[in-house]
């Protein structure tokens, strides 16, 4: 489980129809670390993530996993190394938690192969890791937002990939559940060495939880690196068009961005 994989993007251009979303992008995801991608709305964060997981073919450029182009890899082989949790996955009506999590085993199963002991173990481990074991027989429809998100992460864990991409795993969650999900992902990274790449909305949570921060502006890479270097007042202005003050978070030692609006600012 601790194999490390290199994931690189080189001179990537992405778009839908006539619209170009990402232009000539180069970046490297540090193996075995947590990377967060931040940026304003519609800057191409999700598009980038979709392309990194083969869902969107690049117009030009490559996405390389261990030096191989992901868009040319066999679908199941890729899915055994790299997993993706989309922003709003769909749970079929009435499906139970253990059934849903079990579907994460798909890339490990062949056409006619029976369900194996290994599959059961992977599902059970995923349920335990996400503290959802006691929900196993519940219907996904009945769960709260936070529980549901943990179940989806459990499904991605059952896939047992060394690289996991997540598109805004904390949207629609209240703040306590946001922290809970990010703690869970950190556990995963620390215990299993899983490389995690996630799109996050909240700059401060991104800076707190990520080892590596990627800031996109208008489909281009603005800055990438250690959160302390990337999250600066200049970056916030360039990426979000917002004046801010960045201080050191006294609870974590990470950078903390305080927006400066036109009102209620005393400094």
């Amino acid at each position: 489980m601790t194999a490390t994989h290199s994931l690189e993007v080189s001179s990537l251009e992405l778009g839908y129809g006539d619209r170009t979303v990402i232009e000539s992008l180069d970046l490297t995801v540090p193996p075995g670390r947590i990377t967060a991608i931040v940026g304003a709305n519609a800057c191409g964060k999700s598009t980038l993530l979709r392309s990194m997981s083969r869902l969107l073919a690049p117009r030009t450029g490559h996405v390389l996993l261990d030096g191989r182009e992901v868009h040319k890899m066999p679908a199941k082989e890729l899915a055994r190394t790299l997993g993706l949790l989309p922003q709003s996955p769909i749970a079929p009506e009435g499906i139970t938690v253990s059934d849903l999590v079990g579907r994460g085993r798909n890339p490990h199963q062949r056409l006619l192969s029976r369900w194996s002991r290994e599959d059961d173990i992977a599902v059970a481990a995923a349920l335990d890791a996400t503290h959802t074991a006691d929900l196993a027989d519940r219907s996904v429809d009945e769960l709260s937002g936070g529980q549901r998100q943990r179940v989806w992460i459990a499904m991605a864990l059952a896939q047992q990939t060394d690289v996991l991409l997540l598109d805004e795993p904390t949207t629609f969650l209240d703040v306590s559940h946001q922290v809970e999900v990010l703690d869970l992902l950190t556990d995963l990274n620390q215990t299993r060495g899983t490389t995690i790449v996630m799109v996050l909305h909240d700059l401060n949570l991104a800076a707190r939880y990520a080892d590596h921060l990627i800031a996109l502006a208008d489909g281009k890479l603005h800055a990438a690196g250690d959160p302390a270097e990337v999250l600066t007042e200049d970056t916030v202005r360039a990426v979000f068009g917002l004046d801010s003050q960045v201080i050191t978070d006294p609870t974590s030692g990470k950078p903390l961005m305080l927006p400066l609006g036109r009102h209620h600012v005393t400094v």
Binding site: A75, A79, L85, I90, R103, N106
Partner: peptide, 8 residues
């Protein structure tokens, strides 16, 4: 998207 990510 989920199906594709699971190798379909």
């Amino acid at each position: 998207d989920t199906a594709a990510a699971l190798g379909v």
